[in-house]
Design a protein around this nucleic acid. Structure first.
Lengths: 179, 179
DNA sequence: GGCAACATGTAACTTGTTACATGATTCC
DNA sequence: GGAATCATGTAACAAGTTACATGTTGCC
């Protein structure tokens, strides 16, 4: 299972608390692996038991204290070993496409609204990705450790662009069809 | 949860056994919703308890008998009601991108092989989708009930094309980088 | 005889979600 | 006073995977 490895990957960037990780999942790695906070807290416990991460309490003023986790050298070698294992096929699930598959058996007005919403959220994410790209990978020379991140981001951009084009063409066609 | 609804959607096409559904998931709707056979059998039981599907035993010669499920009118209206509910964000998970994110901490030779494999499987699926398109949606005039299916398939084609382009560009760049 | 495809299932386990629970601080 | 953000968790449940289990028929 790649949740534990994804957490390790996040922690190679910098030490983080469960809360930090949850936000990081929402804004950064969430594009290719997502998790809710109960899952993250549960997984961090397991990782600590295995000795792949180590934690320390950080006293904060003006904010509640936090428990910060960092990857251990055991964690690093576990990550390296895992990286050699076979990748699994990506998981993709979308109940919008389920509806579309049975277009004759669903509420078409609702479907139209749902596609419009999907288009909006794709545009919003695309915007977000563009911002990240401009901020982090602005000029030609991207250093080695950022190369992978940049390529992941580029896939995200292509992916959202694909959705946008598709949604627009679908909307046109169903309008055509209804007329 | 959309597994039960996806099964209902499949059954609007034609009555099927658990085994048929499992194959159908692997070859058709699997692009946007996948499930293993234990999950399907378990879900069919629940659907029957709710009265959304009805089953009958079909005696076969030359093959083991099968239990064929069909959607009931209650199932149809449940599907219609569900279609009006809010769609959830699509789920996408890919441990290849997890590895890429931490390119400095993984086995790069292995990663290269993994990308090549991904490229190959994307090409294979694209081929499959092209075949389906040519077989089912060959000429301009696609009738209403197939419109949604065709648009879903088109997304699949765009999606696999995106992967192919991306894999190729990534391979080029990491070769460049290693040289 | 062995393998592949057909066909249906169970048991045990892991993963993922939802709702609940608590409590601090900051801003309006 | 109330809402939002920060911060960490638990409990119960739903969904998904893996391994096991069984038996048929057809083909080589």
């Amino acid at each position: 299972m790649a949740l534990s490895e994804t957490i390790l990957v996040c922690l190679t960037e910098r030490p983080m608390s469960g809360y930090d990780l949850a936000k990081f999942f929402d804004t950064s790695v969430g594009f290719f692996w997502n998790a809710s906070h109960p899952q993250i807290y549960r997984e961090l416990k397991k990782l600590e038991q295995r000795g792949h991460v180590a934690s320390h309490r950080e006293i904060q003023t003006g904010k509640p204290n936090k428990i910060v986790y960092e990857i251990t050298s055991d964690g690093r070698s576990a990550l390296y070993d895992w990286s050699k294992e076979a990748v699994s096929e990506p998981v993709f699930k979308d109940d919008l496409l389920v509806r579309l598959q049975a277009i004759e058996h669903v509420d078409k007005a609702a479907l139209r609204v749902q596609i419009i919403q999907r288009l909006a959220s794709a545009r919003q994410r695309l915007d977000q990705y563009h911002h990240i790209r401009d901020r982090r990978f602005s000029e030609g020379a991207v250093e080695a450790p950022n190369l992978g991140k940049m390529m992941g981001l580029e896939l995200g951009i292509e992916y959202e662009n694909g959705w946008i084009n598709w949604c627009e063409s679908v909307l046109k066609r169903i309008e055509h069809f209804e007329a």
